[in-house]
Design a protein around this nucleic acid. Structure first.
Lengths: 175, 175
DNA sequence: TATTGTTATACTCTATAACTATA
DNA sequence: TATAGTTATAGAGTATAACAATA
């Protein structure tokens, strides 16, 4: 339809009007700020995710952890290697299954995760600085989280962050 | 972002409470839908961006295009190779500078871009389905765009759509 | 035989640099 | 000398597959 080859617009949909564009810009800004904060952590953002995940609840196996964070279990090996070398986590034998390892955060790991979490909060605020009003911010967060959780239910993708994997496949659709 | 009680005396910051997480989930959902739509385009999302960019205004050089879309000029070469092979764009000599090529969309290219744009709009609506109310959607779009354009001014990153590129990094990069 | 974790390999995307042809 | 475009090479990041130990 619309077979009008309009020079300056064709079918409309200017870039600034694009949802994906806006989301991308915003996420990119946040990621930039976040990865500055997380630059010091072995494994970067991923390493931080592991730290918070193991600090949050009982010891998990590597596989559990990998599934939860949406990374391949081979990647998890490298990730944990780095974190362990840095003294942030430990691999302990699982008394119930000698194949598995229980991953626990060391005191240093918990402490680091703690301080990073605070700094990430600042990064969030930086991104949200475009909405000076407190009410606008709350509104945005609220709407965003409604959308995110809805999407998440539609898309029962295990959990938080298959993000990486999925997006990769997606983008990899290159001809 | 409220102060939640946390399990291990940690610092909280549950995953679902994280701005980066929500943004990532949403962008991922959109990317997934979008790349399904764009799977047929050589170069995927990038290819689509090129198509719309060249269809939107006067013929540009490859370098201009690369800068505008935030991709390396070496990447632009491959991208245009694919698009040209598919008969979607043409490289024409620039009468004013024999080093440069002017990139123009072929009729087929414009037509494809046009139909894809429509289908992308549907993808947007799919993602926004979590906000049933029209007013909520408008509000979200409005707030998001305010944020995005503000961030963009702070961050003079070339322009429109580093999306694709950043999406990789970003994705791996949730805080 | 299946599963946890490790290791080795291949593939994708991107960046860097070298090369050409023009300016 | 500098610039537009191309090509070749190397690097990060990820997935695939083979392997060892255990179930």
């Amino acid at each position: 339809m619309s077979e009008q080859p309009k020079p300056a617009g064709g079918c409309g949909a200017a870039l600034a009007d694009d949802l994906g564009w806006a989301l991308g810009v915003l996420l990119r800004a946040y990621s930039k700020a976040a990865s500055t904060v997380l630059a010091a952590v072995p494994g970067g953002p991923r390493g931080y995710q592991v730290l918070t995940a193991v600090g949050r609840s009982d010891p998990r196996s590597q596989l559990e952890l990998a599934n939860q964070l949406g990374v391949d279990r081979t990647v998890m090996t490298y990730l944990l290697d780095d974190l362990e070398r840095a003294g942030l986590i430990e691999r302990r034998p699982d008394p119930a299954d000698r194949r598995a390892r229980r991953i626990v955060a060391t005191p240093a790991g918990r402490e680091l995760a703690c301080s990073l979490t605070k700094r990430l909060n600042e990064a969030e605020n930086h991104v949200l600085a475009g909405l000076p009003g407190q009410r606008d911010r709350e509104m945005f967060r609220s709407l965003l989280e409604r959308l995110a959780s809805h999407v998440n239910t539609l898309d029962p993708v295990a959990s938080a962050c298959d993000l990486a994997r999925e997006t990769h496949g997606v983008v990899g659709t290159r001809g």
